[in-house]
Amino acid sequence: MAEPLLRVRDLVTTYPIRSALLRRKIGEVRAVDGVSFDIARGQTVGLVGESGSGKSTLARTVIGLEQAEAGSIEFQGTELVGLSARQMRPVRRDIQMVFQDPYTALNPRLTVRQILSEAWRIHPDLLPAQDWDEEVRRLLDVVGLDPQYADRYPHQFSGGQRQRVGIARALAVRPKLIVCDEAVSALDVSVQAQVLNLLDDLQAELGLTYLFIAHDLSVVRHISDEVIVMNRGQVVEHAPTDQLFADPQHEYTQTLLAAVPVVRPWNQESAA
C-alpha cells in the first residue's frame, strides 16, 4: 500500500486540571488517549463521537493548535510532534481547517479579498502579489460564489455563503488535507446539502483528503469512505463506511447507530 498522507500513532493530548486558588496542576484530562489511524490520499475519513469524546481535540492536535503529549503524527512522512512553530510553518500550509461556525471563524473587519489573501501575505512564496486578484476571483468561482462579492464583508453573506468563504480560505494555500470540524452542522438542511456537494466536487477536482468530524451520522455516512468512532479519548472502531453501518462491532458504535433518527420510520416497520 502506498504511504498514507497522515499517519497517527499512539497520540496522547492532555489538558491540565488546575486548583482553583493557586492554579497549580493537580491532575490532567487525557482528552486524546492513545489514538492511532492512517488516512490515505484522496480519501475522506469521518470522525464521529459524542461531545467530550475527544474528536475535536484530536483534530486540533493534528493541525497543531494543541500540543501532543506523546505519540507521533506523520504527515507525508514528516514527523510533526516536537516541531517548533517555525518548522511547522511550511506544514501548516498543507493542512487546513474549516470550522463549524461560519459566523465567528471569519474576521469581521476584513473583506473576503483580504481574508483570502492573508495567507499569501504569510507565505509570500506561494503566489506573487500581482496574481492575487485573479486568484481571489478564481477561488470564489470554485466555491460557487459570485466573484463580484470579493469586496464584501462577512456579515453581508448568509450562513451557507460564509461557509463557502471559509472553504475558499482553506483552499487559498492549496492544502492537501482539510480538517472539517462540524463544517456543515450550523447550516440549514437545504444549504448543508449544497456544501456537501461542493466538498465532493472539490475532492474530485483537486484530489483533496478530508478528515471530516461531525456528530450527524447520516452526514458522515454520506461523505466518508471510512469512519472512525471515538469514545472517551479512544478509538473504539475504525472501518470502511458501509461495513461500519451494516455491521458495527463495538457496543458503543451499536448504541450510537441505534440512536440515529430515521426520517421515515414507517418504511422500516414495513421492511421489518
Binding site: G159, D188, S190, A193, N197, I223, T241, V263
Partner: peptide, 21 residues
C-alpha cells in the same frame, strides 16, 4: 426531504434546493 442524506443511497449526490432561505 431530498436534501437530507438518506441511508439507502450512501455517497450518491444530494439534490439540494438552489439558493438560500
Amino acid at each position: 426531504l431530498a436534501s437530507i442524506p438518506q441511508q439507502e443511497e450512501g455517497g450518491a449526490r444530494l439534490t439540494p434546493i438552489a439558493g438560500a432561505p
